[in-house]
């Protein structure tokens, strides 16, 4: 049997991702009720690609009936929008008045030196983009540095190296055993009550949860992390984001009986029994992270 394993990380933003007009149309679809929501649309596109590709602006203009000039004007007006691809990690240093007098220029200098780039540039390996802003509104905590959405206050020159190292590792990595919100669960099929634990394949260092998924007459295995709070998974075939798949038990072959719909995207929720009593429900749409845990 061919086991072409595709391990996906939830962080799918990287520079150079191809612009797919379908993705843009999907984002536009979500906002088609409020005609004034140009900024919301652009924010979402930026979240998808890390920047605003030229092609996406043209599509937004055409689809929303706005001229390209207006879309471009808004996209260049706000500092938070970027028309240039950004690196994997986005470092943003505040140079507002309060941060400035508390030594932000020295922090920026250190950042520039350690990364080997000037503010507004991206490292050649697409790891870091450094930018400065004029105020983040957290003046009492200055100098403020924001890395990948995480705020760091009263940053000193000496702390810069450590922050960059942390960023390289990723702030979102799960620290098993340290974080109490993340714990392993054992689940079983609600139909045959057979455990879904798969000792042969580990995700996040724990035995994975093995289920079968099917969509478009294609069927294959899907392995989920058994850690509650981790969204890492591996699958036999690549499921495109936004697609709803049906989950089947690999032991009895019965589809998990859905009893409710996702409150976020309206796709069926997939129930699984939790060892020790209780039900965990996960959304069947690829990319949707909605889940409910009911413990008895």
């Amino acid at each position: 049997m061919k086991t072409d394993t595709v391990i996906k990380n939830k962080d799918n933003t990287h520079a150079g991702k191809e612009v797919d007009s379908k993705d843009i149309l999907r984002i536009l679809d979500k906002h088609n009720e409020d005609r004034g929501g140009l900024i919301a649309i652009l924010e979402e596109i930026q979240a998808e690609y890390g920047y605003l590709p030229e092609k996406s602006l043209r599509i937004v203009g055409e689809e929303t009936g706005r001229s390209l000039v207006d879309v471009y004007g808004v996209a260049t007006f706000y500092r938070s929008f970027s028309l240039k691809p950004r690196g994997r990690h986005f470092v943003c240093a505040c140079l507002g008045t309060a941060c400035h007098v508390r030594g932000a220029p020295r922090v920026v200098e250190e950042l520039e030196q350690q990364l080997g780039i000037k503010a507004g540039e991206t490292t050649p390996d697409w790891e870091f983009t450094l930018e400065t802003v004029n105020c983040l509104g957290a003046c009492a905590l200055g100098p403020v540095v924001v890395i990948d959405g995480h705020y760091f206050s009263k940053v000193r020159k000496s702390r810069v190296g450590q922050l960059l190292d942390e960023a390289r590792k990723g702030f979102d990595t799960i620290e098993l055993g340290k974080d109490k919100r993340i714990f392993p669960i054992n689940v079983s099929c609600p139909h045959c009550n057979h455990s879904l634990k798969d000792e042969t394949f580990a995700i996040d260092g724990y035995p994975s949860i093995l289920v079968n998924v099917s969509s478009d007459h294609k069927q294959g295995w899907l392995r989920l992390s058994c850690l509650y709070g981790s969204y890492n998974f591996a699958s036999e075939f690549d499921v495109p984001t936004g697609l709803v798949v049906s989950f089947l038990c690999p032991h009895c072959g019965v589809e998990f009986p859905s009893t409710s719909d996702c409150s976020v995207c309206a796709a069926p929720m997939v129930p699984m029994l939790v060892e020790g009593g209780g039900i965990v429900q996960i959304c069947s749409r690829r990319g949707c992270k909605n889940h409910i845990l009911d413990l008895v």
Binding site: L68, G73, T76, F77
Partner: peptide, 9 residues
């Protein structure tokens, strides 16, 4: 036409 417009700020 709307070929030109304001950019940046």
């Amino acid at each position: 036409a709307k070929a030109i417009g304001f950019r940046n700020r």
